[in-house]
Design a protein around this nucleic acid. Structure first.
Length: 158
DNA sequence: GCCAACGTTGGC
DNA sequence: GCCAACGTTGGC
């Protein structure tokens, strides 16, 4: 059945590419989530995301990796234009205009938070089974349990 | 810079 | 379809 139950996600961004500050400074605090080049992450956007879903904005590959803000899914999926841009690091020569391989959604930043870093996240027993904390996890988009969302967005980062 | 984990590619 | 080689992610 169709559900209006909010869903929640964690989305990684390298702050040198797009930080929470960059997102908040963008028009309508909204940025196109370019560069996803992993099928599992793409499928989460395509099959799982709805406009309005909650997003934990995460900084990766940086000095202090962790959750740095609260955002929301602000659009449905569409083709990621960078896959067709030969000058882009995200260019994919094998992707066809009439059959785009890579998709994106718009993400609207709602507020910046303190940095909720990996060591602190790992120290909360109730969060132990978060996907992002699993050893070797590389997925840039992961679903977040409602209980985990509440504990983080309404608790640790309230 | 190192390296563990994991995804993709391509020979067979 | 198997699987070794290779590339990428991302924490440390």
């Amino acid at each position: 059945m169709a559900s209006t139950t909010p869903r929640y996600w964690l989305m990684k961004s390298e702050p040198e590419e797009c930080s929470i500050d960059d997102a908040l400074a963008a028009p309508k605090a909204t940025v196109p989530w370019v560069g996803v080049r992993n099928y599992q992450a793409r499928n989460f956007m395509r099959d799982g995301m709805r406009v309005g879903d909650g997003v934990l904005f995460y900084h990766s590959s940086c000095a202090e990796p962790g959750i740095v803000g609260i955002a929301r899914v602000a659009s449905g999926v569409r083709a990621d234009p960078t896959q067709f841009d030969a000058k882009s690091p995200y260019y994919d020569a094998a992707s066809k205009l009439d059959a785009p391989r890579w998709l994106l959604v718009d993400v609207q930043a709602l507020r910046k938070t303190r940095v909720l870093g990996l060591p602190e996240l790992r120290g909360v027993p109730a969060l132990a089974d978060m996907m992002v904390l699993r050893k070797g996890n590389r997925l840039s988009i992961t679903p977040v349990d409602a209980a985990h969302w509440r504990l983080i967005a309404d608790g640790l980062l309230a």
